[in-house]
Simulated scan of single mutants.
Amino acid sequence: MRDCIIRSVGWTVPDASISNSELVAVFNAYAERFNTENADAIARGEINEIPFSSEQFIEQASGIMNRHVVDKAGLMDIDRMRPRIPHREKEALAFQAEFGLSAARKALEKAGRTADDVDGVIVASSAQQRNFPAVSVEIQNALGMTRGWAFDMTMACASAIFAMQQARELIRTGQADAILIVCPEVMSAINHYRRREVHFIFGDASAAVLLEAGDREPGGWELQGVRLETRWSNALRSDFGFMNHTEFEEGDEFEAFVDQDGHRVFRDVIPLASSVSSQLISDLGYKPQDIRRGWLHQANIRIVQAVVKKALEREPDADAAPIILNEYGNTSSSSVLMTFDLNSDDMDTGERGLLCAFGAGYGCGAAIIEKR
């Protein structure tokens, strides 16, 4: 079978960003107002007081110091605390498709390719803007592709790696020569900015990766192997879906946002991601010292460092475990591609790296790539 090559990565983030201090200020203002307005009920034990957040809490819990968002004003409005993304008519390009298109075009431009060179488009992200038609087909059309196929898929923060496995098999078996994977993550739209446990985690970003058959031209990164595993868990969950309008009556409080048990996620994900990564390294006949670097999903600095330490059997310094979440936060499936793109130019031909992403489900995907 043919080799599969990562040819290029393109990504984009919104210009607007929110620092920890800004986020804490609006959250604490909301918490203070809620606690004051509900003081009697809190005193009777009928509802819980909302604890305050702090910059120290956020940085110690996650390593995040900043995040880029599509609508800062909506998130900073204490009466709203969610983004404003105006409705568009059916004839207009959907917001998520537009966000994904920006990264897709960057990936094609970097590779020197056009839409005519692409056989398929996969939109792989934590959530799609609508059930159908597929956002991927809309991006396919906006790119000007006159042939081929497109489909949407989701495996939360691990979506990019799961899509890479699908694309790799299609390319290796000759069913496609080039596939564009697009990860448009508008996480601010499903995050709950009034829950202390999650209000600081996510940022918005869109990333795309172009995979091609290895005989097209020299260069790129050979995708040598991928390993996927899933485990059922409710520890990280979002209930947004097409059945919401059947579940809630008029006036009910809608709470189908992201929620998590952070301590449980931390405890569960580290051994899962470490095991999947180590097994893949072994399956390919390598040893940990044969892998120079780990580009991990930027969920939490302690998770990233712990997984790299276990899988690569070395201290997770800046070379072995690069970190970008301090600036961008957790951008879900796009983060592993962004981390790779920002921290790979210094590697030499023949050097290898580990891509690893993990998220709700639980779903975990690992890939070994080698620079050609």
Rank of each mutant, 00 (worst) to 15 (best):
165 Q>C: 01
295 W>F: 14
298 Q>Y: 10
143 L>G: 00
46 E>T: 04
256 A>L: 05
231 R>K: 13
364 C>M: 13
341 D>E: 15
95 F>R: 04
84 R>G: 03
99 F>H: 05
180 L>K: 02
225 G>Q: 15
331 T>C: 11
59 E>F: 12
260 Q>M: 15
236 L>D: 08
7 R>H: 03
140 Q>R: 11
319 D>M: 06
278 S>Q: 09
203 G>F: 10
48 N>F: 01
211 L>R: 03
171 I>T: 12
125 S>P: 11
142 A>Y: 06
372 R>H: 10
81 M>A: 08
111 A>L: 01
150 A>N: 03
273 A>Y: 07
208 A>W: 00
230 T>G: 12
16 A>Q: 11
161 I>M: 07
350 G>R: 09
64 I>K: 06
339 T>E: 13
58 I>F: 05
50 I>P: 02
294 G>T: 09
296 L>G: 13
26 V>R: 07
232 W>Y: 04
298 Q>S: 15
133 P>G: 10
304 V>A: 08
54 S>K: 03
302 R>A: 12
126 S>F: 13
92 A>Q: 06
211 L>S: 06
141 N>M: 05
190 I>E: 09
348 D>V: 07
164 M>K: 00
306 A>K: 11
129 Q>K: 05
133 P>V: 03
320 A>S: 08
85 I>Y: 08
255 E>C: 13
237 R>L: 11
181 I>L: 12
318 A>N: 12
105 R>C: 07
52 F>V: 02
14 P>S: 12
79 D>Y: 01
244 N>A: 06
270 I>N: 11
364 C>R: 14
258 V>K: 00
241 G>S: 02
129 Q>S: 15
152 D>T: 03
119 D>M: 09
187 M>P: 00
368 I>P: 02
177 D>E: 15
212 E>R: 01
22 E>V: 08
148 G>F: 02
271 P>W: 12
210 L>K: 04
344 S>K: 05
201 I>R: 03
43 A>E: 04
361 G>W: 13
216 R>H: 09
48 N>H: 07
313 E>D: 05
171 I>S: 06
128 Q>H: 15
292 R>K: 05
35 N>F: 09
178 A>E: 05
331 T>G: 12
310 K>P: 04
26 V>T: 14
227 R>V: 14
85 I>K: 11
258 V>Y: 12
195 R>W: 10
10 G>I: 06
46 E>K: 00
85 I>P: 07
158 A>W: 02
92 A>H: 03
238 S>T: 14
141 N>F: 00
313 E>Q: 12
298 Q>T: 10
253 E>G: 14
17 S>K: 08
343 N>G: 01
303 I>F: 11
190 I>H: 14
